[in-house]
Design a protein around this nucleic acid. Sequence first.
DNA 1: GTACTTACTTCTAAAATCAAAGCAGCATCT
DNA 2: AGATGCTGCTTTGATTTTAGAAGTAAGTAC
Lengths: 113, 113
Amino acid sequence: MAPTRHDLESCARGDAALTRAFTLLGKRWNGLLLGSLGSGPAGFRELSRAIGGVSDSVLSDRLAELCKAGLITRRVDEGPPVTVSYELTEGGRALIPALHQISRWAEEHLPAT
Amino acid sequence: MAPTRHDLESCARGDAALTRAFTLLGKRWNGLLLGSLGSGPAGFRELSRAIGGVSDSVLSDRLAELCKAGLITRRVDEGPPVTVSYELTEGGRALIPALHQISRWAEEHLPAT
DNA sequence: GTACTTACTTCTAAAATCAAAGCAGCATCT
DNA sequence: AGATGCTGCTTTGATTTTAGAAGTAAGTAC
């Protein structure tokens, strides 16, 4: 069946911007990753430890994804030793207040452990 | 260099509340689902259409999950015809402002389409 | 009766994720 | 000079999650 205009455009439900946001945030780890980078730049291993439970392969994917979305940057510090650090861009930093709000919400409304 | 206690226990990185929040929000569809319910109660099919792309089986799972987390309630209206509607609880409603903030952020910082 | 709706559940196949191992470059300990 | 351990990844299966289609039960519309 062909979708009708009404199906496609629909109502208040289905906020396009929120949909875009959750294309990123709705993927496992991305929110925590950004939250973690909110307290300053960090390296790959540092993020891995901070978040805990994410596999290296997925972490690598996620960081690349967030780079491509323009929310973080990858900076290589030619050493030696060579070190890599990830940092929020302006766009990424702009999300931090919302993450803090979510954190506060979780403290109030989600059972601890 | 040996890691210090401070390194291991850390700082702002690894916010427990944010981690709890993203156990829910970091799953595909949950954020959009809550956002959609933010504009009022809705039935299963209505949510399915509003969100678009979610399969029935996953939608069913997600709704059950959000019920168990206490963010939404499932109300059956014995008809006939029987209708089911999902609605935000107080805890769920408390998240809506954060979702609006995220939506506004996406409008500013995420490329449209 | 035929067609279509809602609210699901069940099935299977495809996609995402995990866990472990490997690799290259550098530092540190003995 | 090794041996060991760190970082920042990539590659390799195995496991988990999700999608997509179909099926069920009950009701409405014609």
